[in-house]
């Protein structure tokens, strides 16, 4: 699923650089960075309510390609700058976590534990 499509489904706005055509394979929703680190597959979009720099370090380590901040949150400048350096796409949606996940899942974006999601390389 292209980032462009994800943004449309979540009625999301891009923050910073646009990466519209990047292909996202799986999705993950969590505010628990330890879970993101261990259970997220590379090439995922991360839905989270956290906006600190640690989210970017965590995403970068886990190979997350895009982060969508839920419930209308916008990250501070330092977070946006770090994301730019790490080439991670950022966006924000007004939908809360559960609905954001549901919308994407409903449109066919699979989770990180599903067999077809296990497509590392």
């Amino acid at each position: 699923m292209k980032i462009k499509q994800i943004m449309k489904i979540l009625e999301a706005e891009a923050i910073g650089a646009q990466h519209d055509n990047r292909d996202i394979k799986t999705g993950c929703g969590s505010d628990l960075m330890s879970d993101v680190l261990v259970f997220t597959r590379p090439g995922s979009v991360l839905l989270t309510g956290l906006t600190s720099r640690q989210v970017i370090y965590t995403a970068s380590t886990a190979g997350v390609e895009a982060i969508c901040f839920v419930r209308g949150k916008t990250p501070p400048k330092e977070t946006v700058e770090l994301a730019k350096e790490k080439k991670i796409a950022l966006m924000t949606t007004n939908f809360p976590m559960f609905e954001s996940c549901g919308r994407l899942y409903n449109k066919g974006l699979i989770g990180c534990s599903e067999p077809a999601g296990v497509s590392e390389k």
């Binding site: 628990l32 879970d35 261990v38 989270t48 640690q54």
Partner: peptide
Amino acid sequence: ELGFGAGMGLPN
């Protein structure tokens, strides 16, 4: 609140 400290660090 930073998303850490949930008791998963060492097990991870």
